[in-house]
Design a protein around this nucleic acid. Sequence first.
DNA 1: GTCTATAAAGAGATAGAC
DNA 2: GTCTATCTCTTTATAGAC
Lengths: 208, 208
Amino acid sequence: MPKVAAAAPPVTKERVLVEAAKMFSERGYAASTTRELARRLGIQPASLYHHIATKEQLLQELCLQSARQIDGAVRAAVARHERPVERLEAAARAHLETTLADLDLHTTALVETRALSPKARKPLEKARSDYEHLIRQLIGDAQGGGYVRAEIDPKWLSLSLLNLLNWSIFWYQPGVGIAAPELTEILLGIYLRGALVDRRATARTRCS
Amino acid sequence: MPKVAAAAPPVTKERVLVEAAKMFSERGYAASTTRELARRLGIQPASLYHHIATKEQLLQELCLQSARQIDGAVRAAVARHERPVERLEAAARAHLETTLADLDLHTTALVETRALSPKARKPLEKARSDYEHLIRQLIGDAQGGGYVRAEIDPKWLSLSLLNLLNWSIFWYQPGVGIAAPELTEILLGIYLRGALVDRRATARTRCS
DNA sequence: GTCTATAAAGAGATAGAC
DNA sequence: GTCTATCTCTTTATAGAC
């Protein structure tokens, strides 16, 4: 039988990371203090250093975790499809849904990477660059197949897609307004077909 | 005749704001120090307080300046057109080109508003809300005219547009890669018509 | 694994001379 | 309008007991 009063959960490295992500995403890294983090965990500031080395290392771990999570989810999703446009769609869906599923983590990673020292930032820039390359590749493939506009450099097409997906972190609130899968379909629909009324059907109708 | 050695420009409120925007956009507000700002201006930290009241007021002024600039540019651009889609296009172009024309200012405003105290943030939230309402209105009008997909809530359509435009501040570098007007046309093209190959022309050709 | 106590550095801002 | 000098507070992190 469990005790009646809920015991405070034990402080683990995992819990420290979760609370840190929450705090960093709310106030930003620089404005967050180790004192406040300790307070949220219910321990003294000094006790924190049994679990972590430095505040910066905390941020670095969160950034790496975020990068690995998005990269992994997207590569796994892409691998489940063969046709270029479907692979691109799968990538976009995985990217956004992974991001929205842990907003604290990914908002921190996307916004606060600049707070890292150049040395701590380096592996992240490599990961980001690799990831962007993957997206660019997917778009290039879809262009090669004749599905995506070839007159635009895949570089700008991939950055456009990331634009469209990433800014959501600044306003999306789970449980308020719209669910993640619906938002995903709206953004993907705009990216692929645009916001204008589709006259393809009309054009075909005119033919018949 | 001008002197041979370039005189250091005099420290004015305007220069303080410009340097502050630069510093805040590079390092973030919380990680920026008044000491560093003074150093960049070539004066002692104490001298700064002849030009400004507090560090926070500096941020607040930048945020308000940014909001007024974007709002003003967009409303002026919209007023030059009558047809709903053209008004929407004019808004998007004005928004992005204004933003990219002073990245330091607008990056600071868009990213660092949360660093303001609730009291200082309030007028900004009002301005943002009004602005978003304007964009939503433009989209609603275009939907009413049958030009923009009516099956998507204008709320999500407007946020999608802002997504697509705003994230550019994180990677756009003036003079590197692509010029602002070109980027604007690419993003606008994607927003309106999408990244997929347009089969409208094909469909029409088949008819003839 | 958490505590008390505190070191060491850096922050925003002010006083008052020039 | 800028200076020197400094107050006061907060920060990250450590030492060492329990």
